[in-house]
Amino acid sequence: MREVIFDTETTGLDPKTGDRMVEIGCIEMIDRVETGRTFHAYFNPDRDMPVEAERVHGLSAAFLATKPRFAELADELLEFLGDAPLVAHNAGFDFGFLNNELELAGRAAISMERMVDTVAIARRKHPGAKLSLDALCTRYGIDRSHRVKHGALLDAELLAQVYVELTGGRQIGLGLAPGDAVPTLVATSVTNVPWHRPSADRPRREPRPHVASPEELERHRAFIAGITDAIWAS
């Protein structure tokens, strides 16, 4: 199954009050395994950057002024997203900004039915625990030492690892080929496993004898008799 893990950076907390998305980072996964395909872009928000927001992600208005506007890359982004489920941490926030930008660009909103919220998954799995991305990275031993500030692609990469752990661990995605389906574990009685049955290309062999011959027994007795100071003779 194809999924896209994504994260956004913004000018603030609420698109309804004029805040804009300024960065998006997306990671493609198939059967919980990263494929190496990514989408990453910065956007010119056509507005100032509040100091509080810049402290979080380090993106200044001057840096973003040279970047394309969202509408210029909307089709490329939508092509990458396709019809896959979209995974984000506190996903309602990211969906709100993404759909706001799509609306401003004259594109249809993405259905909330495609939303997968890792905060909700973590809350069910670890009730009462801290649910931030940093806290979950610590819980699962995921290295985030290179994360000095928030960054959409970096955070999406960390979230992809967290998502795998939240949904069953790394072995869930192991397969022989990229197209292999995620296996379903089924309890099977050993009496149903035909390991003992011969086939046309593997003829039945008579069982090998495993009882010692009289000659072998005599050699064994002679060997035991030659042991001095045996503990069983004391």
Results as ranks from 00 to 15, higher is better:
residue 142 I to D: 08
residue 107 R to E: 02
residue 195 W to Q: 05
residue 132 S to G: 03
residue 133 L to N: 13
residue 104 L to I: 11
residue 138 T to K: 15
residue 16 K to D: 06
residue 33 V to E: 04
residue 125 K to I: 01
residue 120 A to D: 03
residue 117 D to C: 15
residue 40 H to Q: 13
residue 209 P to L: 07
residue 228 T to I: 00
residue 209 P to C: 10
residue 178 P to M: 00
residue 172 I to G: 03
residue 181 A to R: 12
residue 20 R to S: 01
residue 217 L to R: 11
residue 131 L to M: 07
residue 78 L to R: 02
residue 204 R to H: 08
residue 117 D to G: 11
residue 98 L to Y: 07
residue 129 A to T: 03
residue 226 G to M: 10
residue 56 V to S: 05
residue 153 L to T: 10
residue 126 H to P: 00
residue 31 D to K: 02
residue 66 T to K: 13
residue 176 L to W: 11
residue 219 R to A: 09
residue 192 N to D: 12
residue 38 T to P: 11
residue 123 R to W: 03
residue 4 V to M: 09
residue 202 R to V: 12
residue 28 E to Q: 14
residue 106 G to N: 08
residue 56 V to R: 04
residue 146 H to L: 05
residue 159 L to S: 09
residue 137 C to L: 03
residue 201 D to I: 15
residue 163 Y to F: 14
residue 80 F to Q: 12
residue 31 D to G: 10
residue 141 G to A: 02
residue 162 V to Y: 03
residue 168 G to S: 11
residue 117 D to P: 08
residue 211 V to Q: 13
residue 13 L to P: 00
residue 120 A to N: 05
residue 166 L to F: 01
residue 91 A to Y: 01
residue 7 D to L: 03
residue 207 P to C: 09
residue 217 L to K: 10
residue 220 H to A: 14
residue 26 C to S: 04
residue 91 A to I: 00
residue 184 T to E: 12
residue 77 L to H: 08
residue 3 E to R: 15
residue 59 L to A: 08
residue 46 D to T: 03
residue 234 S to P: 10
residue 34 E to Y: 04
residue 77 L to K: 10
residue 88 A to S: 08
residue 101 E to H: 07
residue 59 L to Y: 06
residue 48 D to T: 14
residue 226 G to E: 14
residue 160 A to E: 01
residue 91 A to P: 01
residue 152 A to T: 00
residue 24 I to S: 00
residue 63 F to A: 02
residue 56 V to G: 05
residue 146 H to E: 06
residue 196 H to G: 06
residue 134 D to W: 02
residue 232 W to Q: 08
residue 173 G to W: 09
residue 56 V to T: 09
residue 132 S to H: 02
residue 148 V to G: 05
residue 222 A to V: 15
residue 134 D to K: 09
